[in-house]
Write a protein that binds this DNA or RNA. Structure first.
Lengths: 146, 146
DNA sequence: GCTTGACTCTATACCAAGTATAGAGTTTAC
DNA sequence: GTAAACTCTATACTTGGTATAGAGTCAAGC
């Protein structure tokens, strides 16, 4: 199967498939006489597996590790689980951060109703006054937003 | 004030300050006779303002827009508000995505207790079987995880 | 006057995870 | 035979910085 078909079947772009090959996430396939890549069904399965991992936001390095672990059925799957656990944790932190940011944004946004001029804009004044406060406070480390 | 002092006062690294100058986020400062950058208090305030914006996850292009808008007090502040609104929206979507991902990860993770072998690992089986299912289903668009 | 260390300068390369392009060759359909 | 569609390699670009090399500058101590 040529790369265009594989791309259509997996939903990856042709460039991304070649990129994964360069990154050793996907083995270099056979070539035709005219140097076109020729993929097996296994390559398709591998790419779909990779797709699941990417959908779970794993990095390429992490996926490489999972693929290596998976290659030997007698291996312990411990580091696969560790990878998943780490992600669950990371995502939890990220959600917390985003929620805080969301609140800050909404709070700032509430200080300007609509279509005012710059000099009257509560949003800009907020941003300025926080900056001012940080400027006069030399102890940057202890502040949330500075 | 030299760049090292400015870096210490703002919490940005020296490289980042020079990077912002290259990106036209910060005006090129005066130079000393020996070609060292020499910053004013205004540059400090500008950087602290930029810091607030970055803390709100604005991109450099967005910050540039806000700075340009801010430069003229008679301007309408509408696009500043639009920028903030867009961010609130983006973050909401991102949080929803992450929550879904979190659930998927936890669900997959629950299929492997601890220190099993690869061939018995529920996590790997899950990843595989989703990939299999996607492989036999040609209608990729309508599926959540494929 | 000389050296040492701390500071700054420019230019360039690197990170992740791809995307986009140019320019060349190949295959397929009519 | 030719045109469209496909593939190839190589390279540059994206974002928001970070890290390095190699050179120049400045202040302090001897």
């Amino acid at each position: 199967m040529k790369i265009g078909i594989l791309a259509a079947k997996t939903g990856f772009s042709i460039q991304t498939i070649r990129f994964y090959e360069r990154k050793s996430l996907l083995a270099a396939p056979e070539r035709t006489a005219s140097n076109y890549r020729s993929y097996s069904e296994d390559a398709l399965k591998q790419l779909l597996f990779i797709k699941q991992c990417r959908a779970l936001d794993m990095t390429i390095e992490e996926i490489k590790l999972v693929l290596e672990t998976r290659a030997n059925p007698e291996n312990s799957c411990e580091n696969v689980n560790t990878t998943i656990d780490k992600h669950v944790d990371d995502i939890e932190h990220r959600i917390a951060e985003l929620k805080l940011l969301q609140e800050t944004l909404i709070s700032i946004r509430s200080t300007c109703d609509h279509d005012k001029k710059v000099k009257e804009c509560g949003v800009l004044h907020q941003l300025d006054s926080i900056a001012e406060a940080c400027s006069s406070n030399t102890d940057n480390e202890s502040q949330l937003i500075c």
